[in-house]
Amino acid sequence: MTDLTQTQAPTLPVRKFRIRWSDIGDHAVLILGSLFMLVPLLIVLQTTTTTDVETIKNGPGLVIGDQFGANFDKAMFEASGFSGENTGMSMLKNSLILGLGFALGKIAIGMMAAYALVYFRLRFATFAFWLIFTTLLLPLEVRILPSYEIAQKLGLLNTYSGLIVPLIASATATFFFRQFFRSVPEELVEAARIDGAGPVKFFIDILVPLSQTMIAAMFIIMFVFGWNQYLWPTMITTEEHMYTLVRGIKQITQDLEGTNIPEYGRANMLALIAILPPVLVVIFFQSWFVKGLTESDK
């Protein structure tokens, strides 16, 4: 060993610094990729600072205007539409309720389904699992008409439960939790049984705390997924006070009728606001997310 290092040492200073073309190539791809993602966002940001007249005259430009505050007020607190009920604030509230309800509901249902599948001697458990799994092949878009009809007949139109409940049965969450539960050591279940913990206690006292990182990871995915729902809220909400942000933005840019000019500033401001919560959630839960999907704390 010592001989080896001694003979190698003098050769080190001889090595020259070289530009590696592959490095430059890699960086170029990364930089171009991030520009591709960022430039539209910057355009949105720029248009929120100028007046609508200027935007329609010059298009997006490099000038930073002074209308940011005014546009913000208009977007958040001024109603659009007929009823005067869909301000930015109400849409933000609806979106938050949808995102949280969607994520928490999916996690709760998925965890309980996975618990039943993994820890109980069910007849046809494997069959049930594959049945749940095949629903991945049937996304909302495929079954939207029957789902709508059911929701309508149950009187769920324009309600939060109508917005959330039909969406929360989740094969994805069930699958992830099933895999996770299967990796929890068998001995832990047995120790808990001997310690006198019944099925409910074991679930709440041991399984849920153990799944923390997994829950956080699921929460990110599902919150962003729920927040960005567009088709279902469009179908199920017809009253303006129930609009979510993602659905409401579209309503505003459509106002190009008559002599009105489109409210670019307002729409883009709402778009920015709609982007923000998912970004914050991802930033906040990021470390949990990586942990949940890569390592297990057992």
Binding site: E187, A191, I194, K298
Partner: peptide
């Protein structure tokens, strides 16, 4: 009864 397991089976959290 009380049982001591091979991998201890302590509750990690």
């Amino acid at each position: 009864i009380a049982m001591v397991f091979q991998n201890y089976a302590l509750y990690p959290h």
